[in-house]
């Protein structure tokens, strides 16, 4: 897509926190509208704070799909999986037997 930036690739050894860093980085840079929410906590509710709106969610889904080469199903698009950085990472790890989290993505 035109104008899309390269997202910083995680580096280091496959630490669990890498995935959190990738997701947190994307949300902080692309979706947070209220500067007072930064730095964004991994447990912060993205819905209660208004960080996620319908287009924000779409961009997030497109991002994780492209980044990790997975397809997010309709039924998985629920608040339980997208309410916080931690929730998103837990959901991603539950996909592909946890391959997503360990590999740090194929983006």
């Amino acid at each position: 897509m035109a104008g899309r930036e390269n997202v910083r690739k995680p580096h280091g050894t496959g630490e669990d926190t890498q995935l959190e860093a990738v997701i947190n980085d994307f949300i902080s840079r692309e979706l947070v509208q209220d500067a007072s929410l930064l730095p964004l906590g991994n447990a912060t509710s993205l819905l209660e704070t208004g960080v996620l709106d319908s287009l924000g969610l779409l961009r997030l889904v497109v991002f994780v799909q492209e980044r990790f080469g997975i397809t997010v199903d309709d039924v998985d698009l629920v608040p339980e999986h997208f309410d916080s950085v931690d929730a998103i990472c837990a959901y991603l790890r539950s996909r592909d037997g946890g391959k997503v989290g360990q590999a740090g993505g194929n983006g």
Binding site: L47, D53, S54, L57, L77, V78, P79
Partner: peptide
């Protein structure tokens, strides 16, 4: 509700 309008299946 805002929360509902965000999630398409909801």
């Amino acid at each position: 509700p805002e929360m509902t309008s965000i999630f398409p299946a909801r």
